[in-house]
Design a protein around this nucleic acid. Sequence first.
DNA 1: TCCGGAGTTTGTTTCAGAGCAACGTTCGGT
DNA 2: ACCGAACGTTGCTCTGAAACAAACTCCGGA
Lengths: 231, 231
Amino acid sequence: MPKLDESLLSDLPPFSLLERSQIREVLDHAVSRRYEEGTAIFREGHDADRFYMLLDGYLRVVRTTPGGDQIIVLHISPGQLFGIAPALQRDTYPATSIAAAESIALSWPVSLWSDFTTNYPGFATESYKTLGQRLGQIQDTLTEMATQAVEKRVACALLRLVNQTGRKTEGGIEIAFPVTRHDISEMTGTTLHTVSRLLSAWQKDGIVQSTRKHIVVTAPHRLVLLSGIEG
Amino acid sequence: MPKLDESLLSDLPPFSLLERSQIREVLDHAVSRRYEEGTAIFREGHDADRFYMLLDGYLRVVRTTPGGDQIIVLHISPGQLFGIAPALQRDTYPATSIAAAESIALSWPVSLWSDFTTNYPGFATESYKTLGQRLGQIQDTLTEMATQAVEKRVACALLRLVNQTGRKTEGGIEIAFPVTRHDISEMTGTTLHTVSRLLSAWQKDGIVQSTRKHIVVTAPHRLVLLSGIEG
DNA sequence: TCCGGAGTTTGTTTCAGAGCAACGTTCGGT
DNA sequence: ACCGAACGTTGCTCTGAAACAAACTCCGGA
């Protein structure tokens, strides 16, 4: 295993207040690993024995119903902690996370969690902040799911992807990792058929531009309108 | 303000590991207040300046969409912490909480949060545990909302109420606080009409027994069946 | 080069459940 | 005792979106 470079972490919020030597410690305890697209990092219900930080790539966090239906609860972008079940006194992961594109993540054994929170200034604060954001975000999704029609939900989902992972290109904002119609249907609780129809219609209207597994939003403002008022 | 009795808190998880003298301290900083049915304890978006513990009664935690639709995110039962936005570094409450029945709650200024977590053993642990449970619960609801048909959702909602607040009576398990059809519709993202129809049907089948604002589940096992497999 | 599977599109059918409307019932206040 | 408001029930209509069905396209591997 090659030595990890300290600059990997020094700018990321949970570690940004640390001394150089502390970052060294953190890295020395970390395991770095690469995940191919489609690979699971951990699975729902398994022993929560490690916690993670995504360095590169994108993940989807997924829940499965007893009936076999899946839904995508949220996406993780580089620089975010995930699998932080230990912070919540859980002994088992509440969801599955899967690499949506080739990804790299660091991980630590849960036994270090309390060390991290007590010894490293800002780490606990930042972790709980992410947790708070995530809780709020899920509540948003829930509310949206309960009250909005499919078209608005899909518009919102697209906007969320764009805000979280979008990068500017000529002709619009591009979603930075592979997304299928099916993925979007699992974010919005609908069928891939309906999503496909909506995207086709929007493409005809010049709002989006999509090919297989790849979406560019050409007119974000018009998508905001469709999503109902505020962005 | 009368002196509060120490036995109020000594058995509740977040405080159960504390010395008598520590409980005294906690109580001396607390403000106790009574809320009439229908009163808001705090509202979405307002400054998160206090955190709370429900001593008696029941609360609903509610979110409102820009379009004016409401949904009930969760219910709070006696002994639970709520309004713990400060634990998540939020400066504003993410939802509104309303007394579903006459209720009594203690509260403390947020400035004490870090004192509590550092000085009182078990307090931090227990708080984050509740948080974790709540996050898991909301993910459950979200998944359910995204994948299940209305009938199952309503059945699940009823079972959740029963599990959380149900008490045995002759002839079934009774939900311990006033619930309207409209409330249930706001828990399940449907209309009060549909809920009314379902309850009528179930009453005819002898599964529930309801009068205005009051529901008794007479055949919980049959409701479990309707909710789809596991309880 | 061909094959198979994954992803996508589009048409048609069907129905659960929202929307609308009207009425009945219970409750609290005066 | 009465009134008005909040809560609940039920019938009818109509539509959004699921379900079913069938092809088409792209991609990677043998």
